[in-house]
Structures are given as structure tokens and as C-alpha cells.
């Protein structure tokens, strides 16, 4: 199952992620926790890498224009779940999903769904910043060009607007034609955010966006997340519980492919319903 998740640090993988699990089995909520105005609904979602099950019968609702954080120990399936929302797991051979995810009431697994169209509506920012080996300008304009926009003035506007949204404009407006590789790590990650939101998606998935960054760059990204939630629904995977507490409105604690608890962030961190969650957020294990 490692092959499916190149982003995860492999040394943290333990046998407990196998199908036969010795871990305490949390009681599954039969109904997903209801949230006001859900954008995406996950119903009985299971995912298998070959014979190994990575997600177990997940039910949850992602609230619109809020930040939802997935926390949990390495290998618990956070990233895998995240990558279901834009069907990036489709790229992996032997990967099979059961159940359903619907966004705005429409199933993303329907046969009439155009996968490129889906990915335009569900943007993603990766753990390791991955700017294209092109200029800063071309990176941000990439999605627009894919969508067929050719007019220079329109592209200029898109680039400026989204670099500003990503709080990068001030730093790069005088060198838009430089290679994106000339930026620092934090700038590259913000460029990737600008690139993702330039497509104007409904949802922005963030897969541990700060794990490779220093605290200052991390703080900038976190501020950005808080700002962006007025426009986008954000789902963020993080290792860092403080980060989840700082930026998210809702938090899901996952363990071995299961959602142990999903509630408002306040509740999860201050008054969790489950002992297991409390142990995790208070640092007793993880």
C-alpha cells in the first residue's frame, strides 16, 4: 500500500495499517455528523490498495466555506481520504473504492463525471511544493491555459489576482518571468496555492502543506488558509495538532482508516467524546 502514498513518510508505517488490525475498534457513527450546509458528503467510503483496506466505511460531511482538518497518526489514511475528493487515487493501479462521495449533491464517481472537470472544481496543494519548471507567471496561468484561455490581458488579471490572494504578489511582482524554482520553499508553496485557486475551485484540498516549511513560512500559510476560507471550502491534512487547532473549524481524528471522531475543532480539542481522541490530542500517543 506504500506505492499509493508517496507523500507519506514511509518509516512510520507499521503493520497496524494492515487489514487485520489489533487496534481498538472505535464504534462507527452510523450517520455522519450533521454539519450546517454541507458541501461534500462521504457515504460508506471504503478504499482498497489491492487486498489491503486503507479506508473503512467512512461517513462524513464537509461543511461549506469552513476549514476541515484531518488529523491522526501516520498511515491512518488521512492523505488517502483527501485524495479521494479529486480522485487522484485513480492514478494508482490496483486501487479500488467502494461507497460514494458527492459534491453539491452530485456523485463524483458517476460515469458521466469528467474527471478533469472534477479536478478543476477540487483543487489540491501537495505536501512537497511542486511548482512546474516554468516561470512564476506560467505556473499561475497554467490552469487557465488548460481551460483554453489565451487572451493575454485575461491571463494577466488571473495571475495578479491569485498571486495577491496567495499573499505572494508583493514579493514577486517584479520578476514574474523568473523560474518558479528561484523562489524559497515557503514562496513555492504559496505559489502552488495561487496556482490551485486560480482555477476557482469549490474545494481546496491541502495535503500537509506546511510539513516541509519553517515556522515563519508555516505561519504565513496558516494566515492564508484563514483568509481563503471566505471563498473556498478547505480540507487540510496535518500532522501538527496545534496547526489543526489554529486554522480549522472542524476536525476529524482518524485512526487506521477509520474516522474516530468528527466534530467542531473546539469540541475535539477541549472536550472530545472519545478517550482515544483525547489521548491523541493530548499527546499520549501518536
Amino acid at each position: 500500500m506504500l506505492s499509493g502514498k508517496p507523500m507519506e513518510k514511509q518509516e512510520f508505517k507499521t503493520p497496524e495499517t494492515n487489514g487485520v488490525s489489533p487496534a481498538p475498534k472505535a464504534k462507527k457513527p452510523k450517520k455522519a455528523k450533521s454539519v450546517p450546509d454541507p458541501l461534500a458528503e462521504v457515504e460508506n467510503l471504503s478504499l482498497f490498495y489491492g487486498a489491503k483496506q486503507a479506508l473503512r466505511d467512512i461517513n462524513m460531511n464537509i461543511p461549506r466555506k469552513q476549514v476541515t482538518a484531518f488529523i491522526g497518526p501516520s498511515g491512518c489514511g488521512k492523505s488517502t481520504l483527501l485524495r479521494c475528493f479529486n480522485r487522484l487515487n485513480d492514478l494508482i493501479d490496483d486501487c479500488r473504492t467502494e461507497g460514494d462521495i458527492s459534491i453539491n449533491g452530485k456523485s463524483i464517481f458517476d460515469s458521466d463525471v469528467d474527471i478533469t472537470d472534477l479536478r478543476k472544481r477540487v483543487g489540491m496543494v501537495f505536501q512537497k511544493s511542486n511548482p512546474f519548471p516554468k516561470s512564476i507567471y506560467e505556473n499561475v496561468a497554467y490552469g487557465a491555459r488548460i481551460a483554453g484561455i489565451k487572451k493575454k490581458s485575461v491571463l494577466d488579471d488571473i495571475v495578479e489576482k491569485n498571486l495577491k490572494r496567495a499573499a505572494l504578489w508583493e514579493e514577486v511582482n517584479d520578476r514574474l518571468n523568473d523560474s518558479a524554482m528561484s523562489l524559497s520553499g515557503g514562496q513555492q508553496q504559496r505559489l502552488c496555492i495561487a496556482r490551485a485557486i486560480a482555477v476557482e475551485p469549490d474545494v481546496l484540498l491541502m495535503d500537509e502543506p506546511c510539513s516541509a516549511l519553517d515556522p515563519i513560512a508555516t505561519a504565513k500559510i496558516e494566515d492564508l488558509v484563514t483568509e481563503l476560507k471566505s471563498k473556498f471550502t478547505i480540507v487540510i491534512v496535518t500532522h501538527n495538532m496545534q496547526q489543526a487547532a489554529r486554522v480549522s473549524d472542524y476536525t476529524a481524528f482518524m485512526y487506521i482508516g477509520d474516522i474516530v471522531e468528527f466534530d467542531t475543532t473546539e469540541k475535539i480539542f477541549l472536550n472530545p467524546a472519545k478517550k482515544h481522541t483525547e489521548d491523541y490530542v493530548s499527546g499520549k500517543f501518536g
Binding site: L88, D117, R119, M124, F126, P133, Y142, A147, C192, R195
Partner: peptide, 15 residues
């Protein structure tokens, strides 16, 4: 060519 660059492009809705 790193895999995450390809994924970055695909995630933007590129074929």
C-alpha cells in the same frame, strides 16, 4: 521527472 509534478498538473484538471 518527479511524480508530484505530474500530479500537480493532473490536480489542476489537465489531461
Amino acid at each position: 521527472v518527479p511524480r508530484n509534478i505530474r500530479e500537480g498538473s493532473l490536480a489542476l484538471g489537465a489531461t
